[in-house]
């Protein structure tokens, strides 16, 4: 497979490490009353769609950026790739301290 890296162009998938569902970027709020259940879902439950899937790839043998790649799991067609730092994410649970 070839992955269209937003900065580096088409790169061979062998340069990447695959992690899986991009929902892993949505870490639950640890202070929520339902935190334990939320974390159980976050850690153990994943969608495994036959079709379009947003997933995380790490360019380990490259620039070490995490990408969110949108891929059709049936055809391996890649519909897009963006830097994880640019991708949509949930609200931050803690403000950075000085």
């Amino acid at each position: 497979m070839l992955i269209p890296h937003p900065l580096l162009g088409l790169r061979d998938a062998e340069e990447f490490v695959y992690l899986g569902d991009a929902s892993l970027m949505q870490r639950p709020d640890p202070d929520s009353p339902t935190a334990l259940t939320d974390f159980c879902d976050y850690v153990f439950l994943r969608d495994n769609p036959a079709g379009v899937h947003r997933e995380l790839w790490f360019h380990e043998q490259g620039d070490r950026s995490w990408l969110v790649v949108t891929r059709n799991t049936l055809t391996h067609e890649i519909l897009g790739a963006e830097l994880a730092t640019d991708a949509a994410r949930p609200t931050v649970t803690q403000e950075p301290s000085a």
């Binding site: 490490v17 992690l19 995380l56 380990e60 730092t85 994410r89 931050v92």
Partner: peptide
């Protein structure tokens, strides 16, 4: 060594990109 680095980058880029 490689794995921890990968996971720290995950935390930095995917969980808390707002941190400097």
């Amino acid at each position: 060594a490689g794995l921890v680095y990968r996971n720290l980058e995950f935390a930095r880029q995917c969980l808390w990109p707002e941190l400097d």
